[in-house]
Design a protein around this nucleic acid. Structure first.
Length: 416
RNA sequence: GUGAGUGUCGCCUAGUGGUCUAAGGCGCCAGGUUGUGGCCCUGGAGAACGAGGGUUCAAAUCCCUCCACUCACCCCA
């Protein structure tokens, strides 16, 4: 094999497309129900955009970005996440002049240099919804509701919605200090990863999977106990809204996120079974990000969802997906004169908005019908020498095997 | 980046040192009366057995290296 798709990437072949079209359709529909409009941004951006937003010290920036210099010498990076580009576009195009909040959604390929694994790829697709320009906790509720309703609408079941608040830049430092304090007494019991986390990113100590570390995390200080009055108020109102919305959330004190820009609300949705790479949705509030990128202080909230992982779960749960419609009719012919008729007829039907697959080459009628059968079309039209002479065609119903000889002009009406 | 498992026609699989210039199923192509599919029958195309190197009289079968895939850690959607 000379060439293969690069590691961690994959071709989405026709037989998979039904899932993908279905996802797109649902994403657009939810967007429309909630008043979110689609935005598409470039696959690559100025490297600094991601370094600044995602955080210089995160794994994504430190070792997972596809970064390159273009021929003009600009340092560019294939987007490793979807939120920063949306914020950049918000600033670049002065979207703060629109009524706030501005509500946007995207479906985009995401690139991260990682070791591929179940539910993890170097190029994958995410969709996400972002509401920029207001700090009302009702917006947090709306966004979380969108994620939840999305899964209801595609019939994915057995999901768990996890919620936490990690505070803002006013109260988080106090919490992190308390956390470090607590962990200082347990350093010797920590796994080696956690020892580096303690220095680098103490919040991440909380979601280590090692049982021994989890025990320590279980009695660690909880972020919600250190919230400032504003964050506290925000969180309790959000919880009330989620109850109003009838969303079955659980507060998970160990839930933190891997990107630096999150503030206050963070949430995830995952299958109840759990398992590796299982998170379907991750999101939260990012009230400081726009300012960090050079705008005025502008609160915002959003989430991203991994499409491959969702499809994986749809398959696991045997969820039926609407098929992509096929052409209705196959046109078979015998002989050159018939072929001329077939070409004309094919074109007429297509112009009349009827999907047609026309035979090609010089195959036996048997071979042509075999092909029609394999393609799964509902009807076959057969044109032979006799039909050319009499100015008719044969219309064969592929399910019932009934066929009749008719003038071609009747075809359009019968196939509509 | 770390660890484990796997690697034979498009897909699934047989084969564990000589009978393998590799077998079967699915799929594909064609034929089975003159212009007709789906079932059945027959035939055909399609792999030098991931790549390279070794051991041996002899390797798909043993050893080494590399590569790829899968899974887990890590990270995250």
């Amino acid at each position: 094999m000379l060439y293969r798709a690069p590691r961690g990437t994959s071709d989405i072949l026709p037989k998979e497309q039904a899932y993908w079209r279905y996802m797109e359709q649902k994403v657009a529909h939810i967007g429309q129900l909630y008043g979110y409009e689609r935005i598409d941004d470039p696959a690559f951006e100025d490297t600094r955009l991601f370094a600044r937003s995602v955080g210089e010290d995160t794994d994504i920036v430190k070792k997972e970005m596809y970064t390159f210099k273009d021929r003009g010498g600009s340092l560019l990076t294939l987007r490793p996440e979807g939120t920063a580009p949306v914020c950049r576009a918000y600033l670049e195009h002065g979207l703060h002049n629109l009524p706030q909040p501005v509500k946007l959604y995207y479906i985009a390929s995401i690139f991260r240099y990682e070791r591929p694994q179940a539910g993890r790829y170097r190029q994958h697709y995410q969709f996400g919804y972002e509401a920029i320009g207001d700090d009302d906790p009702a917006l947090d509720g709306e966004v979380i509701d969108m994620a939840w309703q999305f899964f209801l609408s595609v019939n994915l079941r057995h999901l768990s919605l996890q919620l936490n608040s990690i505070g803002c830049k006013k109260c988080r430092p106090g919490y992190i200090a308390a956390l470090k304090d607590y962990y200082a007494d347990h350093t010797h019991q920590l796994c080696s990863d956690c020892k580096t986390r303690l220095k680098r990113n103490p919040l991440r100590l909380l979601d280590c999977k090692k049982p021994s570390c989890q025990q320590i995390a279980d009695s660690a200080p909880r972020s919600i106990d250190y919230l400032c009055p504003e964050c506290e108020e925000h969180f309790s109102r959000l919880k009330r809204y989620l109850e109003l919305l009838d969303l079955p959330f659980v507060v998970n004190h160990h839930l933190v996120r891997g990107l630096d820009y999150y503030t206050k609300t963070v949430f995830e949705i995952q299958p109840e079974g759990g398992g590796a790479q299982s998170t379907l949705v991750g999101g939260g509030r990012y009230d400081d990000l726009i300012e960090e990128l050079g705008g005025k202080p502008t609160p915002a909230i959003g989430f991203a969802a991994g499409i491959e992982r969702i499809i994986l779960n749809l398959k696991k749960q045997n969820v039926a997906i609407p098929p992509i419609p096929k052409p209705k009719v196959f046109i078979a012919y015998l002989g050159d004169d018939a072929r001329d008729e077939a070409i004309k007829l094919t074109s007429t039907l297509r112009r009349g908005d009827i999907g047609v697959i026309e035979a090609v080459g010089d195959k036996s009628l048997k071979a042509q019908l075999r092909q029609a059968n394999t393609l799964g079309v509902g009807y076959a039209v057969i044109i032979g020498e006799q039909e050319v002479k009499s100015g008719t065609v044969i219309l064969r119903d592929m399910t019932s095997a009934e066929q009749r000889t008719i003038p071609p002009s009747q075809l359009e009406g019968l196939l509509k």
